[in-house]
Amino acid sequence: MNLDEYNISADQHADGMYRFILKNIRDEDKAKDIVQDSFEKLWRNVEQVNFLKVKSYLYTTAYHTMIDLIRREKRKDDFENVNVLDYSHSEQYSDISEILDAALKRLSDVQRSVILLRDYEGYSYSEIAKITDLSESQVKVYIYRARKHLKKFIGSIETIV
């Protein structure tokens, strides 16, 4: 492709590309930038592009440039909408472990054992039943009652923190 063919391509396809991109992204300035970028890429590859296939090259380049722009803006929007509180913590001292220890001490020995085996160690109900020589239904009842007692003793987590 030579300079005259490049200029003819710009005259023939610039408006159509602009309308195509504008319909997709609905931003006039960005659409103009994408068309300009597409013609810049054509200029850099002018020797490799056949004049008979220039329309296809330009529209494909414009489309891919538009997709890249949309992806960049999406990442930028996602970054700007990050809630800082999700990734930070307060330096305040919290004695929640002391409160949990005090609450656990108020449980009966059986309740404390099954709740620790289930919630701290991660054993299944059947494994806890074998360890404690209780039936599986007894284990579930003890765990339920222990959790209910802990909830009543501690209250809501917001009051602790």
Rank of each mutant, 00 (worst) to 15 (best):
H13F: 10
A14D: 08
A14V: 00
G16N: 14
M17Q: 11
R19T: 13
R19M: 10
F20I: 00
L22T: 09
L22V: 05
K23I: 03
K23Q: 15
N24A: 11
I25E: 10
I25Q: 06
R26C: 05
R26G: 03
R26P: 00
D27V: 00
E28W: 00
E28G: 00
D29N: 12
K30E: 14
A31S: 12
K32M: 08
D33W: 03
I34L: 01
I34A: 06
Q36E: 10
Q36H: 08
D37W: 02
D37G: 03
F39L: 01
E40P: 02
E40Q: 13
K41P: 00
L42Y: 05
L42S: 04
L42W: 04
W43V: 01
N45G: 03
V46G: 09
E47F: 04
Q48F: 10
Q48S: 14
Q48E: 15
V49G: 03
V49N: 05
V49L: 03
V49M: 03
N50Q: 08
F51Y: 11
L52W: 11
L52M: 11
K53G: 10
K53A: 13
K53R: 10
K53E: 13
K53C: 08
V54N: 06
V54W: 02
V54C: 06
K55G: 03
S56M: 05
S56C: 05
Y59Q: 01
Y59V: 01
Y59C: 02
T60K: 05
T61R: 08
A62L: 03
A62N: 09
H64C: 08
H64E: 13
T65F: 10
T65C: 12
T65L: 13
I70T: 00
I70Y: 02
R71W: 04
R71Y: 03
R71V: 00
R72W: 07
E73C: 01
E73G: 02
K74A: 07
K76E: 15
K76V: 06
D77T: 12
D77E: 15
D78I: 04
D78T: 09
D78Q: 11
F79M: 08
N81D: 07
N81P: 01
V82Y: 15
N83T: 12
V84M: 10
D86L: 03
D86K: 03
Y87V: 09
Y87M: 09
Y87L: 09
Y87N: 11
H89S: 12
H89V: 04
E91D: 12
E91L: 09
E91Y: 10
Q92L: 09
Q92V: 13
Y93T: 15
Y93M: 11
S94T: 12
S94F: 07
D95I: 05
D95Q: 13
D95K: 10
D95P: 06
S97P: 06
S97A: 14
E98L: 11
E98T: 14
I99E: 15
L100K: 12
L100R: 12
L100T: 11
D101F: 06
D101W: 01
D101R: 05
A102S: 14
L104K: 11
L104I: 10
L104F: 14
K105D: 14
R106W: 05
R106D: 13
L107T: 13
L107M: 06
S108M: 00
S108I: 02
D109M: 02
D109Q: 06
V110T: 11
Q111F: 01
Q111M: 04
R112Y: 11
S113P: 07
I115E: 06
L116Q: 08
L116Y: 04
L117N: 13
L117W: 05
L117I: 09
D119K: 04
D119I: 00
D119M: 05
